[in-house]
Design a binder for these strands. Structure first.
Lengths: 339, 339
DNA sequence: GTGAAAGCGCTAACAA
DNA sequence: TTGTTAGCGCTTTCAC
């Protein structure tokens, strides 16, 4: 099984009795090449089964046409749809995408970022882990002016583009909705304080309560890792309080589902005994019974837009473009769990 | 904002008054280098902030330490969990992963495969699109002995490793289960005939019916693209037959959910009027009401194993390893929709 | 155990 | 419009 030798631009050049640079130019649609030569080269390339060696081109041009992505978990719908958006746009511009996942671990994230850096990606789109409380690894990029774009979860100490949703107002909106439907004792299962998104949601919750003149009851604010298990424990604690809540704003749909399951087991009626609202609009939220009120986050669109922005930056790396913080709208979806 | 110049092995070599090759060897843990030199080089590398240029190394060594992945859609749970498995294993072996999605379009798939090829990936893990009825693009890899591994959806004309589940027996198992629970008129919403997985599931269905002496009723076999919409239409057609089925084996969970929704709207009781079974165990299946009977496919494990196998092949590319067809077990999960 | 030299396949000054 | 030349940063023989 001997491997057929790789065809290079030199082989094409030899065959056509022209120089390698002319071949290179013709293949790259350089302006200053005659149409005739271009045709000739292209045809020969097909004829000989030429495949450009992207590696060599990248090494020389110091561009990889690749963007790196770091997400906490690929298999969460919000993130996979964001990746889908990134991929779809990058595709149209001839960019490759390298995906890595941090598993919500700082150490793994640092590792991911370093790998992307070593692979000389032209830019990085990242949503940070729940543990990320330092930014040294990110400075690897920002110090060298390699574009970073945060989406959803960001690191506030790094100055760069962000694409987020308005977590504060969304938290406010959710809480107000619970108040309007008549809830008097509203609890919140929050995520780690470390992340702005969770802090903002919590602050929105507190603000809405304050505006309505509802006091925050001791023990009504649970701070968790927002996993299924932690959600279940947190909700159980809430419902075991002497004066349990009649409405709970859960930090994500996963914990809202945990709550729902707890209610089923313990014969609590949703929303009559306790109303529930989640966050993210996971695919299951619309179809559970009772269906789950939640907030739609435009994952695909966030990814798509992040890709647009970063590729724009990469292609205009010599011009100074001020950093932007895009805030995309969310949509409160009221379903049975809080009707 | 001037960029700090990149540190190369030559810089390290100059500083240490040794040769670049020694630096290279020290960094790569070459056996024949003194421990002292190794330490010295490593320390200097850290001190000067040296980052290896993977591109250059790859160009020279003709290895990219990268595996390419093609899936129909990243945002489907089965595929994203498979990717997660690939990523996790590849990570432990220092391999990068480039993800592409075909959107179930043959043309896009061809494009993906070519891109991966041009990027000189060391191997490719692929689950083909619903439209894939040719293998020319795949021969790009197989002709050059670059490892391909199919998972789930494969192309039978390409001789290589496969990781699949036993769709035939699973289809048989599902149908038998419906028969055992008392269904007399069992229909099947199948996927495109082009793909083996759907053909096998269908054949398993037919076999089970035959064994039980149940005739296949005209119109009971629907062949669709297995989307939500097509599922709804197919199920509506089934239920509008003069003699509608009392059990339906749906080709995936998406169509089973469509069926469930149709039943809710049309006041049909599941499973009493019609029992339903899906395929894949999507996250929503356990939590819909009634909960959906389905088959668990080990997505993460399939990805993990595919990565193991392909990296093993890459690392042993000079030895001839016979191709294997791994058939992973599925698990029938009986829930309310077919109890 | 270390160094010298060659070159992976391509792009981009600079010349012509 | 095309050719010449010189690397990109690394690995890898082949010497010593």
């Amino acid at each position: 099984m001997r491997k057929s030798p790789e065809i290079t631009i030199h082989h094409l050049a030899n065959e056509l009795k022209i120089s390698a640079s002319t071949v290179s130019r013709a293949l790259n649609d350089n302006i200053k090449i005659s149409e005739k030569t271009r045709q000739l080269v292209r045809q020969k390339a097909i004829e000989m089964g030429y495949r450009p060696n992207v590696l060599a081109a990248n090494l020389r041009s110091k561009k990889t046409n690749t963007i790196g992505v770091v997400v906490p978990r690929i298999d969460r719908y919000f993130f996979s749809s964001a990746i889908s958006g990134i991929e779809d746009y990058a595709w149209t511009k001839g960019f490759n995408v390298i995906i890595t996942q941090s598993n919500d671990l700082l150490l793994k994230e640092i590792n991911c970022v370093q790998t992307l850096f070593n692979n000389r990606v032209d830019g990085m789109i990242i949503s940070i882990s729940m543990q990320t409380n330092e930014d040294k690894h990110l400075r690897l990029f920002s110090d060298k002016n390699i574009p970073i774009i945060f989406f959803d979860r960001f690191c506030p100490t790094i100055d760069c583009d962000r694409i987020v949703v308005d977590d504060f107002n969304t938290g406010h909106k959710i809480t107000s909705h619970l108040i309007e439907r008549g809830c008097k004792r509203i609890a919140h299962i929050a995520g780690p304080e470390l992340l702005n998104i969770y802090r903002d949601r919590k602050d929105g919750y507190l603000k809405a309560l304050k505006e309505a003149g509802i006091p925050v009851i001791e023990g009504y604010l649970e701070i968790t890792g927002l996993t299924k298990e932690e959600g279940k424990l947190a909700f159980a604690r809430l419902m075991s309080l002497p004066n349990p809540p009649d409405g709970v704003f859960c930090g994500n749909d996963t914990t809202a589902l945990s709550a729902l399951e707890y209610c089923q087991i313990n014969n609590l009626k949703v929303p009559n005994d306790v109303a529930l609202v989640g966050f993210s609009d996971e695919p299951f939220s619309a179809v559970v019974t009772p269906s789950l009120s939640t907030v739609k986050q435009p994952g695909y669109q966030m990814g798509f837009q992040a890709a647009q922005k970063i590729i724009y930056r990469i292609k205009n790396s010599n011009s100074i473009i001020p950093f932007e913080h895009f805030i995309l709208p969310t949509q409160l979806i009221i379903r049975e769990s809080s009707k």
